[in-house]
Structure formats: C-alpha cells, structure tokens
Write a protein that binds this DNA or RNA. Structure first.
Length: 179
DNA sequence: GCTTTAGACGTAT
DNA sequence: ATACGTCTAAAGC
C-alpha cells in the first residue's frame, strides 16, 4: 500500500527584513504565518503544529504571493488553500464568512456574527484569532463595531499596516470609510 | 472622547 | 466547572 503524500512542505521567502512562510500539503496551503523578523522565527512558528515536515524552496512562489498580498497586491489564492482541521462548525462558519470580505473593505465582528446567526461577537474574535491562514483569510479586515482597528495576533500596528496597504484610510486608529 | 461594567458565547483546560 | 478571548452596549465622567 502506497500512501500518497501526506508530506508537509514548508517554503519561505524574504522581503525587506520580513520573512514569510507557507506550509503546503498535497499542493494546498494549509498554514501561513504573519511575517517574522528572522527566517528562524518564521520556520519555528509555522512548523510548531506539525510533527514532521520538510523545508524546500518548492513553494517559494506561494510564499512570495503571500508576501505580495501582505504588501497590498491583489492576489487570488483561489483553489490554493483549504480551511482544514478546524474543531467546530462555528470556526468554519466564521472563517468562511471572513474569506468573502472583498479586498479593500472591512466588516465588524458583529457583522460576522450576525451573518452566521449568532450573538457570539467575542467568540468570533476568538475563532478568527485561530485563523490558520493569516493574510490569505483576511482576518485583518475584521474590525470593531466603532470602526477602531481592534486586536490582532500580529499586533494592532501590523493590522493597520496591512489595511493601509490595501488602501484603507486609518486616522487615529479608526477606519475612515470612503464615500 | 475615554473608562468601566456587565453581558454574550464558543473553546481550552 | 472555570477562565479567557482580535467584542458590544450602556453608563458615568
């Protein structure tokens, strides 16, 4: 019996002091990270949920795509990722909503919870915080109801930076919706 | 505008 | 059972 590849391959790329990484299984991205300041940190973070993996430059191009998305380029990852290994339906529902937020727009935690018929605003934040695919699943586009930027795994500053890279205007920590 | 407070609810431990 | 979280709304300053 031959086991087709369950092998996890990790590729990295570097751009102006930032190190990105992707983990790929069966040709699909299964995990990304927010950029780190060293390649070592990037690899440590992306690999910590895998018992075995191998490093390769095979998917460096995908890592570069994530990097470009971070910097505001409109990159489509359609068919290149799967939302996997999520515990409950709740997290899946939340993440599926978040994926639909268009480039350059934002939604609030409340809007996401209403979209899935829930009042669990806070649980939405928790679920998004476990997003295995930051950047690809645009959790940075989810903000507080008063349009303040809100929390972020990589820090509020990084969230602001990504949003600004997408052309979103932020003044004093608040999203300014363009007319 | 800022801070506190209570409320809501999925998840981890 | 308990505690925590990328939160919200209301109340007080």
């Amino acid at each position: 019996m031959i086991f087709i590849s369950e092998k996890i391959v990790i590729s990295t790329c570097n751009h102006e002091k930032l190190y990105f990484a992707v983990a790929v299984k069966n040709g699909k991205i299964i995990k990304t990270i927010l950029p780190k300041l060293t390649e070592k940190e990037a690899i440590a973070e992306i690999s910590d949920s895998f018992s075995s993996f191998q490093l390769s430059d095979e998917y460096q191009g995908l890592a570069e795509s994530v990097c470009r998305a971070y910097h505001g380029e409109r990159v489509s990852f359609k068919d290149k990722f799967i939302v996997h290994e999520l515990k409950g339906d709740f997290q899946k529902d939340v993440l599926h909503e978040v994926v639909e937020i268009p480039y350059g727009e934002v939604r609030t935690y409340k809007q996401i919870s209403e979209a899935i018929d829930s009042k669990a605003y806070r649980a939405v934040g928790t679920a998004i915080g476990k997003n295995p695919l930051p950047i690809i699943i645009p959790c940075h586009r989810v903000v507080k109801s008063d349009l303040k930027v809100g929390g972020f795994f990589g820090g509020t500053e990084m969230k602001k930076e990504i949003l600004e890279n997408e052309g979103i205007c932020i003044i004093n920590g608040k999203i300014i919706i363009k007319k």
